[in-house]
Simulated assay, not measured.
Amino acid sequence: MADLNFLAPVPDVVLAYNELLSQQAIGKKIKIHSKQDGIPDLEGVDVAIIGVLENRNDINYIGEDFNLNEIRNAFYKLYPGNWCTSMADLGDIYKGETVEDTYYALKETVSELVKLNIIPIVLGGSQDLTYPMYRAFDSLIPMVNIVNVDSNFDLGDLTQPIKNDSFVGKIILEEPYNLFNYATIGYQTYFNSQEQIDLMETLYFEAYRLGQVSSDITLVEPVMRDANIVTIDLGSVKASEVSLNQKVSPNGLDGKEICAITRYAGISNKVNALGVFEYKPSQDDEITCVLIAQMIWYFIEGLNCRVEDTDFKDEHVYQKFITLVDSQELNFYKSIKTGRWWIEIPFLNEINNKLKRHTLLPCMHQDYLDACNNQIPQRWYKAYQKNCV
């Protein structure tokens, strides 16, 4: 457990607040890393909150510090659902001497927790912290899928040093090349250059506009079902839902939508890490803290609804549907247990296949209906094309 030595205990002021809460509140049911008792026993823990007080790679950084005390207070005073999830709050990773030091601490901590089958919920400053979260999986799984809930793609100038608006470029370009898919949920076109939009298309990455997501939030479910890391930029939430310093755009996801998205992330059997970033406290920041607390609550609610439904070796637990689209045979699978759908991506034997564990791609019932009408599903097409690269 040496790699958890980077974590500082939850501040005493939060623990004092927690003492005043109801015995039924989350704060009384969560294991807490305290100065007095140290890191709690993690046996049986399913999910752990980690704060990362790093924001120096924010393009707007002017030397300000922040803490996560109000978020913890807001979360602790909520009441748990009918959960069987064991929770821990492991405290904070402080700024290192350099940003790279902080990255290393976060990478090692996330890697250690995932090895213990504990899902880290990383709360932090700038969203470039997604990069060390991604690197934490280098030795854990061969290919990584990232879903970013954001109004921007964050590709940035790939030749420039990493910042919170360009961390994806570093993920794409730096060896080892472990990124298989990158999907952006809720992007707003006017915040992204046409060159970035074209690059997303060229790389066969997925992008879902704010209007699409708001019109049908269920679009998010199959994308989340295939994600390993989910990262959320609070700037994707519209200004009326958050506090003064958080206001980015009059348009964005509302509170119900962002909570539905985190619940979908929790339900996904593959999601091993969640990051909530770009928290910027202000004197009136109470409402933002309550929203973040509710997002965490819904993520854990989703965890409690996880159902393993991918045993496609047993033909009694699924239905198979075969369609023909432009002479291409498409195989769909529907879980009898949950009603969720998948589409098969064929192996291309003559190439170095990157999809060894991605032969079945989550999709929607609508994708099957589209295929019956001779339309190739976009998710299938992009995954197939990446397999050919």
Rank of each mutant, 00 (worst) to 15 (best):
D3F: 15
D3V: 03
L7P: 10
D12A: 15
A25Y: 05
I26K: 11
K29T: 08
K31T: 12
I32T: 15
H33M: 13
S34Q: 13
P40D: 05
L42I: 11
V45F: 00
I50P: 01
G51A: 13
V52A: 08
L53T: 07
N57E: 02
N60H: 03
N60V: 03
N60D: 00
F66W: 03
N69C: 06
R72S: 02
R72A: 03
F75Q: 06
Y79M: 15
W83L: 12
A88E: 01
D89E: 09
G91C: 10
I93A: 04
Y103C: 00
Y103A: 01
E112V: 02
L113F: 04
K115F: 10
V122W: 02
G124R: 01
G125R: 00
S126W: 00
Q127V: 07
T130H: 07
R135I: 09
I141Y: 11
P142F: 09
M143H: 13
V144M: 09
F153T: 14
D154Q: 03
L155C: 08
L158Q: 13
T159N: 15
P161K: 10
P161I: 03
K163S: 14
D165P: 08
S166V: 00
S166Y: 07
S166L: 03
V168W: 01
K170G: 07
I172W: 10
L179T: 04
N181D: 07
G186W: 09
Q188R: 09
F191D: 08
L203C: 02
F205D: 05
E206N: 08
A207N: 01
Y208S: 01
G211A: 11
V213D: 06
I217P: 12
T231F: 07
I232C: 09
D233E: 05
E241C: 15
N245W: 03
K247G: 10
K247W: 04
V248N: 08
S249V: 04
P250K: 00
G255N: 15
I258P: 14
T262P: 03
T262N: 08
R263E: 13
Y264M: 15
I267Q: 12
K270E: 15
N272V: 14
G275H: 08
P281N: 04
Q283K: 04
Q294T: 11
W297F: 13
I300F: 02
I300Y: 00
E301S: 14
E301F: 02
L303F: 06
D311N: 15
F312E: 04
E329T: 14
I336E: 06
L348E: 13
K354S: 10
L355F: 10
L355D: 13
H358D: 13
D370Q: 11
D370K: 10
A371K: 08
A371S: 12
C372T: 02
I376C: 07
N387D: 11
